[in-house]
Amino acid sequence: MIPLDYYIGLSAILFVIGVVGVLTLRNAIVIFMSVELMLNSVNLALIAFSAYSGDPAGQILVFFVIAVAAAESAVGLAIIIALFRNKLTVNIDEVNVLKW
């Protein structure tokens, strides 16, 4: 039997890889992929807690997280397309109009 700690540890490692990706990368699309990695690691933790405690609410929550992630990626990629159309780049260092 696999202890619950292993799942939570794997989920934590995947989450931190996503955080480091968001902090270090410069390509807006790959930053979005890092956000998807983080969402996925949280889903894994929710499913693991749900299965080990016998409470189906965790799986329902994952269902809603996946629905929100789909909406988020559609809107986010539309923003990236609009950004590329206006600035001809997806490098976030060159997008500094809102910088004070």
């Binding site: 039997m1 202890p3 299965a51 405690s53």
Partner: peptide, 12 residues
């Protein structure tokens, strides 16, 4: 917790 809950078999 170290094992799957018994009612997780039919939960998913």
């Amino acid at each position: 917790m170290s094992g799957l809950s018994p009612n997780s078999e039919s939960m998913g």
